[in-house]
Each structure stands twice: as structure tokens, then as C-alpha cells.
Amino acid sequence: MADIKYYDVILSPVITEKSMNAMADKKYTFYVHTDATKTQVKEAVEKMFEGTKVAKVNTMNLEGKNRRRGMTIGKTAKKKKAIVQLTEDSADIEIFAGL
């Protein structure tokens, strides 16, 4: 297993209609490093965003999609997505505030 630092775990937020609606329940969705565990995701969120406390983390592995360029067939890269549930007394994540 690779030695992943907390600032390398979270790659980007997922901006979709479904993830924006889940923010009302204090659920935030991120693309994370493919080797990251749930405890590493929890630690990264709590360190990167001040005042947040994570209640639970759900992760899912996404396979790459098939793509074709002429007669050449390939796949896009695999991704891992994490849905982070914050506690009720936790502060909101400001990165989503202006969206």
C-alpha cells in the first residue's frame, strides 16, 4: 500500500445535481485517491476543512468507461468516489458555499 499524505487523498469535489441535493443533509461527495481508505478520507477531511467532524464515510470504486478512437479501443482511468457524512454539530465545508 502506498504512503499517502492527507493532502493527496482528496482530488476534487463532485459537482452534480444529486451531490448538491445531498449537501442539505451534510453529505459531501469527493473524488479520492484510488488507494485511499475510509479512515484516510476521514482524516483528510477533518484536517483540510477546519471545524468539521466526520460521522461516516462511504466509498465506491468506479471502473473506467470504454472509449473508441477510430478503430482503437481503450478505457478511461479508474476513479474512487467518497461520500462524507458530517455530524450535526459540525461546521459546513466552505468550498461548496458559492455553488
Rank of each mutant, 00 (worst) to 15 (best):
D3T: 15
Y7E: 15
V41Q: 00
A24P: 00
N58L: 13
T52Y: 02
E94Q: 09
K27A: 09
K80W: 03
D92M: 11
S90F: 01
T34S: 07
E50C: 07
V84S: 00
A77F: 05
K38D: 05
M60C: 11
K75Y: 05
L99Y: 03
A97W: 01
V41C: 02
E88I: 09
T76R: 00
M60D: 07
R69L: 09
V32N: 06
R67S: 06
L86E: 03
N66K: 13
V54M: 04
A44C: 10
I10D: 07
T52M: 05
E94G: 03
E50Y: 10
K27L: 00
A22Q: 12
Y31T: 10
E63Y: 13
K56H: 13
D8Y: 14
V32E: 02
V45R: 02
V45W: 08
E50M: 12
D25G: 01
Y28H: 06
Q85V: 06
G98V: 02
K27P: 00
Q40N: 01
N58W: 06
G74L: 07
M23W: 05
E88V: 11
M60S: 15
Y6A: 14
K47S: 06
N21V: 02
R67G: 09
K53L: 04
A24D: 12
D25I: 07
L11S: 13
E43A: 12
K65Y: 07
F49H: 10
G98R: 02
V57N: 04
F30D: 08
K81C: 10
D8A: 15
V14N: 12
K78N: 03
A24N: 12
K26V: 11
H33R: 05
K79Y: 07
K56N: 13
E63M: 14
T52H: 11
L99P: 01
E43G: 09
E46H: 01
K38T: 09
Y6D: 15
A22G: 05
V45G: 07
E17H: 03
S19Y: 10
T34V: 14
V84I: 01
N66M: 14
N61C: 12
K80I: 02
N58T: 13
A55Y: 09
V9N: 14
G64N: 04
I4K: 14
F30Y: 02
M23L: 08
T37F: 09
D89R: 03
T29S: 01
E17V: 00
A36F: 04
F96I: 01
T59F: 04
L86D: 04
M1Q: 13
G98Y: 03
A55F: 08
T52V: 05
A44H: 11
